[in-house]
């Protein structure tokens, strides 16, 4: 049997599949890359999960598979969460002022409570 062994290109796909020399430059209408998920990973047991990025997937199961490949193929990772981007609620940029509170907050800090002076004076009223 005779086969045509002419190498048209170094890319075997070009030679094997006889792709057109001038590709069709029309847009692809059927393109669909699914919805997006946000990915959180835990580097080691005991750590908080940390947001590391997002990806496209058709469902949570596929999102976990793709997240493992994308965010855990190199470095240590023991656990991954994926959450649909559309399921995340967040505060608005325009509402940043809701985080502004009174600047003086010593009443809610440990350092705001100093009792030794009073205790010492109570124990020994004659000493200054």
């Amino acid at each position: 049997m005779k086969t045509d062994k002419t190498i048209i290109s170094l890319d075997p796909r070009i030679t094997r599949e006889k792709l057109p020399e001038t590709p069709d430059q029309k847009p692809l209408n059927e393109l669909h890359h699914w919805q997006t998920f946000e990915v959180f990973h835990q580097e080691k047991t005991g750590d908080h999960h940390k947001h590391v990025g997002s990806l496209h997937a058709p469902n949570a199961e596929m999102a976990l598979l793709l997240a493992k490949e994308q965010f855990a193929r190199r470095y240590k990772c023991v656990n991954i969460w994926v959450v649909k981007t559309s399921d995340i609620s967040r505060t608005g940029k325009e509402d940043e002022d809701i985080f502004e509170t009174t600047p003086e907050k010593m009443y809610r800090e440990a350092g705001g409570y100093k009792v030794m002076d009073r205790i010492n004076k109570f124990k020994d009223p004659d000493k200054i």
Binding site: Q35, S54, M62, R90
Partner: peptide
């Protein structure tokens, strides 16, 4: 694999 009801949402960050 696509679900009919899925909606594309811009990723957050």
């Amino acid at each position: 694999l696509m679900r009919q009801d899925e909606q594309y949402v811009t990723p957050l960050s």
